[in-house]
Design a protein around this nucleic acid. Structure first.
Length: 643
RNA sequence: GCCCCAGUAGCUUAGUGGCUAUAGCGUUGCCUUGGUAAGGCAAAGAUCAUGGGUUCAACUCCCAUCUGGGGCUCCA
């Protein structure tokens, strides 16, 4: 790009819609944004010049493709949030000059900054927020400066973190100044601090330098930021609403599960939660049977030698529970695979049996760090809907595609959206480079064959192989890994698994571990939040509640109840001496999908009055008619009851 | 495990160095016999998470432990 031709030269600027205009060289994107302001959806915050993000006040000296970035776009929001992080850092430095800044990126909904300083208190947070408001009110300009390495090292000589970062940077170094504050930063930024209109500091946390627990713990301050106050308020309101769907609260209110001090991280399932759990298992079994899986169950406690052989003693020990019985060491299984291996080894397998799909709903125990436990999302004991598939190398791709399809189908029945990640070789790993390469390629190819978008997590695989993970969202937008497909080219070696090939010789099978729900517990947590406790009819613990208008209709109510129960519906009866509105309200609060009322009119005409959760009422319905309608809703696993 | 915050009837919650610790929901009993999101009255229900300390006096202040929440690290 030309540098010094700022004279009266014209530059040609091409816009994303293909149109082009000529301007005097040296014009800034800000000027252009002002001229075309009305055509922009939101406030201009930055610009993309030939595909590179730049500040709005960058002078344009050559022909370029130009795209104005507005505050309502994804990039625009990131820029705004990153600028908010700078403002926060500036506020912290004003209030706590001895604090050392490290890094402060934009994240989804907001930003954070990691700061080396003794822990902040919630009162400090308020002060910092007030100081930020002052800085925003001052509307300070953000100015980019490119300096040499030496200048940078001098400027940040009191900050070892920044010096470490400078060392890793190549070429000249960019800093941003606003008023007296400066920070190492690639940019771009919004033109001035006044752009940051709706923000709030949300939480304090400890975080390790470079994300490594061996390093010093820093103080992380999180905030959210939006282009205006209204969007911030909407966001805060939405979060408040979302918290009402928290599975921990609903689990208690709807009597689904409980967790006690006597067993932290080990959930109890209550009768209603058990109904839901059993139903999702039933569904899972049916779908697996259709796809040629067989099911086994292996012990929860297995001898130490097995874990030595599988490599778990070496690679997973910290997470395992041990016990000693009759002077012999045992471990409680953290994974199902070693048990599955023993089953495979029980007989000689032929190539004709492959792919061999062996499923197991295995209860596993893992000693997770106390700080990570979270309701049903992160527990120490969970049921894995595991399966091991043994196959030939040629079968890998099709098998993985089959699992991807099964996952997609099952999630779609629940109406879940998900995203996929591919994780590659971690530092702590067994197996050779070639094995890892082949295995990772196989997963990649399957994903590409299905045309799936995926994110790559370098070094995030299991110690025995690379994996594809399926992530589902909870009510506040956090994602949790549920389904997983893990290629394992190591365990078949460890256990010397073989099959007899067409040539009569022994061959090593390839094996995958996979789950769909991941953990029944975690999946149920997601399920509860997804439906906000209002389960579809086929999953509802109580499908129909019958209520009586007065005591003298209890006999008739019982007759109706027996009738419905004959068709396997889950029905209960409320004949409390309370008013109808009272009992209707109670049933609605329990999220019971169908409420039946019986009184004089119903008994005389041998009918019922049916109310659904949406408040709709249907009078004079015959019992057979109702059963037929409910069965139809259950059979197609309808999300909302339609009568 | 680390950082920040919290812990009062089954649930939601008031309270604060000082008589016997609020209230609503729920539960139980009685009255009411009703028509689609709360009828009335009454009773029972709390060693204020646990253990220490400070004080004439602690639910309240301090320390430790446990548990929970949000992050970090880790992971289904």
């Amino acid at each position: 790009m030309a540098k010094d031709d700022k004279d009266n030269k014209k530059v040609k600027i091409t816009f994303p819609d293909g149109s082009a205009e000529e301007y005097n060289a040296g014009i800034t994107a800000m000027d252009i944004a002002k001229r075309i302001g009305k055509r922009l959806a939101g406030a201009a915050v930055a610009v993309e010049l030939d595909g590179r993000l730049c500040d709005l006040n960058t002078p344009i000296r050559g022909n370029v493709r130009l795209k104005i970035i507005t505050a309502d776009s994804k990039e625009g929001l990131n820029i705004l949030r990153h600028s908010a992080a700078h403002v926060m850092a500036q506020a912290v430095k004003r209030l706590f000059p001895e604090a050392r800044l490290t890094i402060g990126p934009a994240v989804e909904e907001g930003f954070y900054y990691d700061i080396d300083h003794p822990p902040f208190t919630p009162e400090d947070l308020e002060k910092i927020e007030a100081e930020m408001k002052a800085i925003v009110a001052e509307d300070q300009l953000f100015r980019r400066e490119v300096i040499s390495r030496e200048q940078a090292e001098k400027l940040f000589n009191d900050n070892p973190y920044k010096l470490e970062m400078i060392k890793e940077l190549e070429g000249d170094i960019a800093i941003y100044r606003n008023n007296g504050f400066f920070d190492l930063c690639l940019g771009p930024h919004v033109p001035s601090t006044g752009y940051i209109k709706g923000f709030k500091l949300t939480k304090l946390a400890g975080a390790y330098w470079r994300g490594d627990a061996k390093n010093k713990q820093l103080q992380r301050i999180y905030g959210v930021a939006f282009p205006d106050k209204k969007q911030l308020d909407d966001y805060l309101k939405m979060m408040e609403e979302a918290e009402k769907r928290d599975h921990r609260k609903l689990g208690k209110r709807l009597e689904l599960f409980s967790i006690h001090d006597e067993a932290p991280g080990f959930p109890f399932f209550l009768p209603k939660g058990m109904i839901v759990k059993n139903l999702i298992v039933e569904f899972w079994r049916a779908e697996h049977r259709k796809r040629g899986y067989v099911e086994i169950q292996t012990p929860i406690i297995l001898g130490r030698e097995l874990w030595e052989r599988s490599g778990h003693m070496k690679n997973y020990r910290e997470n395992m529970y041990f016990l000693r019985i009759d002077e012999k060491d045992f471990a409680v299984k953290p994974m199902n695979c070693p048990g599955g291996m023993l089953v495979y080894l029980e007989k000689i397998h032929s190539y004709r049996e492959l792919p061999l799909r062996v499923a197991e709903l295995g209860i596993v125990h893992r000693h997770e760090l106390s700080g990570v436990l979270a309701g049903l999302f992160r527990v120490r004991c969970f049921t894995q809907d595991d399966a091991h598939i043994y196959m030939t190398a040629e079968q890998i791709k099709d098998e993985i595609i089959g699992v991807i399809e099964l996952c997609d189908y099952i999630y779609s029945v629940f109406g879940f959206e998900y995203h996929v990640e591919l994780s590659t070789r971690p530092e702590k790993a067994i197996g050779t480079d070639e094995q890892w390469e082949t295995a990772t390629q196989a997963l990649r190819q399957a994903l590409e064959a299905k045309g799936m978008k995926y994110k790559v997590n370098e070094g995030d695989g299991a110690f025995y192989g690379p994996k594809i993970d399926f992530h589902l969202k909870d009510c506040i937008g956090r994602t949790w890994q549920c389904g997983t497909i893990q290629l394992d080219m190591a365990q078949p070696e460890n256990f010397d698994l073989t099959y007899e090939g067409e040539d009569g010789a022994k061959h090593r099978p390839v094996m995958i571990h996979r789950t769909i729900y991941g953990s029944l517990e975690r999946f149920m947590g997601i399920l509860i939040e997804q439906f906000a406790g209002r389960f579809p009819l086929w999953l509802a613990p109580v499908q129909v509640r019958i209520l009586t208008v007065a005591d003298r209709f209890v006999d008739y109510a019982n007759k109706i109840k027996a009738r419905l129960e004959d068709t396997n519906l889950r029905v209960d009866l409320d004949c409390k001496a309370e008013s109808v509105p009272y009992k209707v309200r109670a049933a609605q609060l329990e999220e019971i999908p169908v409420i039946i009322t019986v009184g004089q009119k119903e008994e005389e005409n041998n009918t019922v009055a049916v109310r659904t959760l949406d408040g709709r009422l249907k009078l004079g319905v015959k019992a057979e008619e109702l059963v037929k309608m409910l069965r139809e809703n259950i059979d197609r696993k309808a999300v909302r009851v339609e009568l």
